[in-house]
Structure formats: structure tokens, C-alpha cells
Write a protein that binds this DNA or RNA. Structure first.
Length: 378
RNA sequence: GGUGGGGUGGCCGAGUGGCUAAUGGCAGCAGACUGUAAAUCUGCCGGGCUUUGCUCUACGUAGGUUCGAAUCCUACCCCCACCA
């Protein structure tokens, strides 16, 4: 039910198949983010046509609205949203970071001042497990403490050790919830430790000592640290990660990060940038980023990316999409979201094919050259 | 024809003697965004230049008062309202 089969490797890069209750996921894979039970702005059919095999939901947001009890009463997140493929829910750990101005943290958990109505909401490892169990995604994430990317050793160590203690509580509570129930949800731990190699090693060692997990996530990256540090952390970790388990790099990334992550042995990615940047008018193409609102596109009859077969590129011109943005037609942001999603999904999928063919390294080199040729900021 | 109100940067619209190249907003241009408090935020936005500054041209037009005018005076042009 929670199987992972490794099909091929090339260097650290891997191609595999992850089997989950709602279906299988071929890796490497990019997972669109649907924080509040919807990939922002898109119809599930569009997300599916963009190639998504699995999407995310968020514990914190769905707890605030509509409430996990509502989702459970409506038959769970899959039935509620009509998304019948695999799903993964984040634990609310990211909100410890992103809502740092609205929360108080102690050993027991985190108290948030709801950004919706100001009410106090307490999230603990146990509560995060209960919410995720009620939501019913295939994969639940452990409740973690994510410190800012440039945290000093002492802070990163404190957060990493707390994350390990919280992992034990998460695991115990999740086991309790799952006891006697059919195996419909698995729990994944999250490696923390900031930019510090020793902390990252300790974090992973602690995780692996704590149990036999069906997958392992690397968290706390792309939160303010530099790219060399982010890539370096993955390189440090890779040899110690279980070969026969999927590795999930949380919250990453941009196209170049997907390539670099795959090259360093990552199997799963998720990132809001595809939809957020898409909404904001930034499109990824094989030749780098394109500012959709740019004056240069006013009379451009080309698609966003000539090599793309998404619903936006096979039908609409840059000039028209630019017009939609200026006219504030929702179709504009939606089309670029669809394109960016498809771009990342196809990127991971193409990497998979190259790994299976044993040509990944050469392909990646060419890809980087072309993507950065025009001077896109790395 | 008379009376009253008004003409400000691409547009709308503040400003009634110096701190005004001129508040705001819109439009426009550029940038940011990585497990979504984001259909958001930031910067630029009269011209030129050696651009944390200098300079030229500007508040209907033409004169005038003043050390100094978008702001006061005169004439003219145009717009709006009401009255004939």
C-alpha cells in the first residue's frame, strides 16, 4: 500500500514508482500545491491535464476553514475536492515559519493567532496528526519546527531537536489513530537542521533510529539561505538517505532547483511558485523566465514556450495572455498557472525518462545551458 | 448677450505667494515571489545629463505685480451651469 520501487539510477539521480492508496506516482515528480483544498485558481481537471499525479493540502488552512470535521463529514479531502489521485497534507510546520509574527512556540506546540479571524489556534504534534487523519490524505507530514534559513547553529539545533521530539509524538499519535483502521495514510518525518551539516546528519540519524518510514522529507530549505547551501545540504544528506524510500524536498522549487534536486537524489518536490508566479505574470520556459506583462510581448504571436504542449501554449499567444493580464481577466493568471505547473511536471517527467535511458547527466547539462543562456538569474 | 463656476503633468484630481517638478488615484514601465496571511508587494513614472545630484521646460494664452507666482491683477481664448 505504501511501496516504493526504484527502477533506475544514474549517479545520485533516481527513477521510481511510489504506490499509495489512491494510486501510484512515478518519480521524480513535482506535486502542485492546493493549500485550501484547491490548486489556486484551477479546476481539478486542469490540474490533471497539466499532468499532476499527486497534490498537496494544508493542515493549518483546512483546520481554520472549513475545519477538518467538515471535511471528514463530507467524506474526506478526496471526496470533498473530487481529487481522486494521491494527496499529501503538510502539517502546519511551514506556518510556524511563515506566520512567525502571529504565533508563540513552546515545547508542547505552537499557538497561532488565526490570520482569518484572530482567534487562538493551538497546533501540537498530536493535533496536527488528528487533523491530517480526519482530512485523510495518503501521506501525512510530521509536525516540525522550521526556523529561518539563516538561523545560527544554536537556533537551528534547538529547532531540529524539537522536531525530533515532536516526531516521536507525531508517530505515536498517528499509530494510535491508525490502529485497527485499514492502512489508508502513512506518516513521513522531516529532516531539519538549517544550513548546518552536522545538524542535518544528526536529524536524519535521529529520524532513522526512530522508525521505519515509508518516505523521508527534507524540510527547512529555500527559506532564505543561498542556493549553494541548499544544494549542499541535499548532497550531505543523500548518502545517508534510505535508497529504497522516496525522498521529498519540501517547498522546492524553481525549475533549476528541480533539476539540481533530481541530480542530487530527490524524488518528490512541491512548490507554490508555479501558481503564485503564474498568477503574478511570470512564466517559465525552456529559455528562462518570461515576464508576461512585458511590453515586448504586446504583439508577440508565439506561445509562452514554443516547446510546450500545455493548454495555454497549444492555443494562446503571448500577446493575448499579456492582454488578459492587463484587462484583469482571470483567464490570464489561470493560463500561466497551468503553464508553469505543466512546465515543472513535464520537467520532472522528462528527467525521469532521461534517468531510465541513462542520459540524465548530459541532458541536464544541456538544459541548464539553454535555461540560463539568456541570462535568467540563477 | 448677462451672471456664476472652472481650465493643473497620458487621464482623473489636490494645491490659493516661497518648504512645488507640483499630494492622491488611475493608466504605464520594471522588479520580487520556493512545504501560499500573496489575483500580492516594491521601485520608477515631464525632458536631458556625469542621475543620493545638476539642469531645462512646465499648472489655458499673453502681459503685469512681487526678491519670489500654479497660487495675486489685467486682457483674451475655451468649457460648464443658470438666466435672457
Amino acid at each position: 500500500m505504501f511501496d516504493f520501487t526504484l527502477e533506475a539510477t544514474q549517479g545520485a539521480a533516481r527513477a521510481g514508482t511510489l504506490t499509495l492508496p489512491h494510486g501510484s506516482v512515478q518519480t521524480p515528480c513535482f506535486m502542485p500545491v492546493g493549500t485550501r483544498g484547491a490548486v489556486r485558481g484551477l479546476h481539478p481537471a486542469e490540474v490533471e491535464r497539466a499532468g499532476a499525479q499527486i497534490i498537496l493540502g494544508n493542515t493549518y488552512h483546512l483546520h481554520l476553514r472549513p475545519g477538518e470535521e467538515v471535511v471528514a463529514a463530507m467524506g474526506g479531502l478526496h471526496r470533498f475536492t473530487t481529487w481522486q489521485k494521491p494527496m499529501l497534507t503538510d502539517s502546519g510546520g511551514f506556518q510556524v515559519f511563515s506566520l512567525s509574527g502571529l504565533r508563540k512556540l513552546d515545547e508542547d506546540g505552537v499557538e497561532f493567532t488565526s490570520h482569518i479571524d484572530g482567534s487562538l489556534r493551538r497546533l501540537t504534534p498530536e493535533k496536527a496528526m488528528q487533523i491530517q487523519w480526519d482530512l485523510g490524505a495518503d501521506v501525512a507530514m510530521a509536525f516540525d519546527h522550521l526556523p529561518p534559513g539563516q538561523s545560527p547553529h544554536e537556533i537551528a539545533r534547538d529547532a531540529m531537536e524539537r522536531t525530533l521530539r515532536w516526531l516521536e509524538r507525531s508517530r505515536q499519535h498517528h499509530d494510535q489513530l491508525a490502529a485497527g483502521a485499514p492502512r489508508r495514510q502513512t506518516l513521513w518525518p522531516i529532516v531539519q537542521g538549517g544550513a548546518w551539516a552536522d545538524l542535518r546528519r544528526d536529524s536524519l540519524a535521529g529520524i532513522l533510529a526512530a522508525g521505519d518510514w515509508t518516505g523521508v522529507a527534507i524540510g527547512g530549505l529555500s527559506v532564505g539561505e543561498s542556493k549553494p547551501i541548499m544544494y549542499g545540504v541535499i548532497e550531505e544528506l543523500e548518502p545517508a538517505l534510505p535508497k529504497d524510500r522516496p525522498r521529498y524536498l519540501m517547498g522546492v522549487g524553481f525549475p533549476e532547483d528541480i533539476i539540481e534536486g533530481i541530480a542530487r537524489g530527490v524524488d518528490l518536490f512541491d512548490c507554490v511558485a508555479a501558481t503564485r508566479n503564474g498568477r503574478h505574470g511570470s512564466a517559465w520556459t525552456a529559455d528562462g523566465r518570461v515576464n508576461v506583462r512585458g511590453l515586448a510581448l504586446r504583439l508577440d504571436e508565439q506561445p509562452l514556450d514554443a516547446s510546450c504542449d500545455c493548454e495555454a501554449c497549444t492555443r494562446f499567444s503571448r500577446g493575448y495572455i499579456r492582454h488578459l493580464f492587463y484587462a484583469e481577466e482571470h483567464l490570464g493568471p489561470r493560463l500561466v498557472s497551468i503553464h508553469n505547473l505543466h512546465f515543472l511536471i513535464r520537467l520532472a517527467d522528462e528527467a525521469r525518462k532521461q534517468i531510465l535511458d541513462g542520459t540524465f547527466a548530459a541532458w541536464a547539462t544541456e538544459w541548464r545551458q539553454r535555461y540560463f543562456a539568456r541570462g535568467t538569474t540563477p
